[in-house]
Structure formats: structure tokens, C-alpha cells
């Protein structure tokens, strides 16, 4: 939950506002995506929820408690995967469990389930550099999911993947979150991705980042039963999808116009 969060950076001794009075709440087991132009502070939002950065004013709370630092109950999936190159796929996924002090037997069980779920069963002993980008990001997602975190934070996790792989990963993430709903904060600059994945979409305006509007997707998805479609292109073909997408696009375009009008 973000309450009037403001974050200022300093550049050449000058304060540069990155985020201004940002307030929103992610509900339990809700998938919230933040969209906005680059430099609107959406990654800063995620980093503050992760405890890797802190607000200049205002507060970020998770489960009622203020965020004081990073922790495994708020697992992060980074755009650059951030896998440890010297650890195998298995060891990468195991790392956080060992950090939590979970016994070997339980670790093996949970990792096996996760490898199966992410289609990584035969890759446990591979090193990250032997895998494609899509596979590497699967490992990173498995590494977060295996911790059974209260909150999943994803910072443009598919941004570094090619278009085809991205679509496959998006479809799999939807399946995964239908099977096992989590509280997710998902950062993206892709409107389609946000509408396809999220229950609600937070639209941001450019710097200093402010919340522009929160668009409800879950109600439309349930009413139109998007989940009966297996493929992303079929969902994206729905009138209801197009309408939502257009609405968010307009919001983004409007604020761009106002931003350029300012001196």
C-alpha cells in the first residue's frame, strides 16, 4: 500500500522529483499493473515496495507494516533476470530457501514442483548462460514463486525478451496466477500486457510521476469471460479488451499533451 509517497533524487546538487504524492493499494491476491511512460517513476515504486529504496516522504506498507528493507516475503523478478551465473538452475531456485533455513528434504520437494510448473524439469543442472532469455526468466520467476511470497514484485520481467517468447510467458503467467493467485505488483510500459495480465491497472503520468487513474480490468474480464480463451490474441481481439486498451492509451496520450504544453 502506497500512501502519499514522494521520492526525490539529487542530481548535481539539485533535487529532482521522481514521484509525487502517489497513493494506491494492492489488495490481497490481486494483480495490479503499473503502466506509464519511461521515467515516470514506476520502477521506483517497485523498488520502494521491495525495500531497495525508500520514500522521501509518505509511507509504503505491506500487510500493515512499514517496509524497512528487502525480504523474501516480497520477492522481486528483475528485468535483467538477475540469476547467479555461478549457480545452476536448481541452485538458483534453492538459494532463497536455504537463506530461509528450510530443510533439504522440503527444499527438494518445493523445487521439483516449481521446476515442473515452469517447464524446467530437465534443466535443473544447467547454468543460466546455457539457457535462452525466456528460460532464464522462467528460472527467475520460479526462484520467486518457490519462496511462496506474500507479495510478488515484477519489474518489466518480459521487457528483455523477444516478442514471441514474451507472448508465451504472458500466457503462462496468466495460467499460473489463475491456478495460484498471488498479490502481484507488475511494472510495464506495455498497455496490452497490463490489460491482459492485471486485475487493475494504475496509469501514471510522466515526471514527477503521479497516479493518473486506476482502471478496473477484473470486472470486465469476469463479465466477458476472457479466461475461456487460451491465446492472448483471442483475448486481445475482444471488443471489451480493445475498449480498455484504448481508454488507457487515451489517458497516457492526454497527459503527454499536457506535459508538452508546460514550459
Amino acid at each position: 500500500m502506497f500512501d502519499r509517497v514522494t521520492r526525490t533524487f539529487e542530481r548535481d546538487g539539485q533535487p529532482v522529483p521522481a514521484l509525487a504524492e502517489m497513493s494506491f493499494t494492492v489488495r490481497e491476491r490481486e494483480f495490479v499493473a503499473i503502466v506509464g511512460p519511461s521515467g515516470c517513476g514506476k520502477t521506483t515504486c517497485m523498488r520502494m515496495a521491495a525495500g531497495l529504496e525508500f520514500p522521501t516522504s509518505g509511507s509504503v506498507t505491506v500487510g500493515g507494516r512499514g517496509v524497512t528493507g528487502p525480504g523474501p516475503e516480497r520477492a522481486v523478478v528483475f528485468q535483467q533476470f538477475a540469476l547467479f551465473p555461478w549457480k545452476t538452475v536448481y541452485e538458483n531456485i534453492e538459494f532463497g530457501l536455504r537463506g530461509k533455513g528450510i530443510a533439504r528434504g522440503e527444499r527438494a520437494e518445493r523445487i521439483a514442483r516449481q521446476l515442473e510448473l515452469m517447464g524446467l524439469r530437465d534443466y535443473g543442472s544447467a547454468y543460466p548462460h546455457q539457457l535462452s532469455g525466456g528460460m532464464q526468466q522462467r528460472v527467475a520467476i520460479a526462484r520467486s514463486y518457490v519462496l511462496d511470497p506474500g507479495v510478488l514484485l515484477m519489474d518489466e520481467p518480459f521487457g528483455a525478451l523477444d516478442a514471441q517468447t514474451r507472448v508465451v510467458m504472458q500466457e503462462e503467467l496468466v495460467k499460473l496466477s489463475r491456478v495460484n493467485p498471488r498479490t502481484v505488483l507488475f511494472i510495464t510500459h506495455s498497455v496490452e500486457e497490463a490489460v491482459y495480465l492485471a486485475d487493475r491497472v494504475v496509469v501514471m503520468s510522466p515526471r514527477p510521476g503521479r497516479m493518473r487513474e486506476v482502471v478496473d480490468v477484473a470486472t470486465v474480464r469476469a463479465a466477458e469471460d476472457w479466461d475461456r480463451h487460451e491465446r492472448i490474441e483471442d483475448v486481445m481481439d475482444q471488443q471489451s479488451f480493445v475498449r480498455l486498451r484504448t481508454r488507457i492509451w487515451r489517458l497516457l496520450r492526454e497527459q503527454q499533451a499536457t506535459a508538452t504544453e508546460q514550459p
Partner: peptide, 11 residues
Amino acid sequence: HLLEAARSLGI
């Protein structure tokens, strides 16, 4: 980001 990942994993 590797160090951040490790910290986020609670290592």
C-alpha cells in the same frame, strides 16, 4: 542487481 536479488531473497 545481483546483490539486490540476493538481498530480496533474504540471504
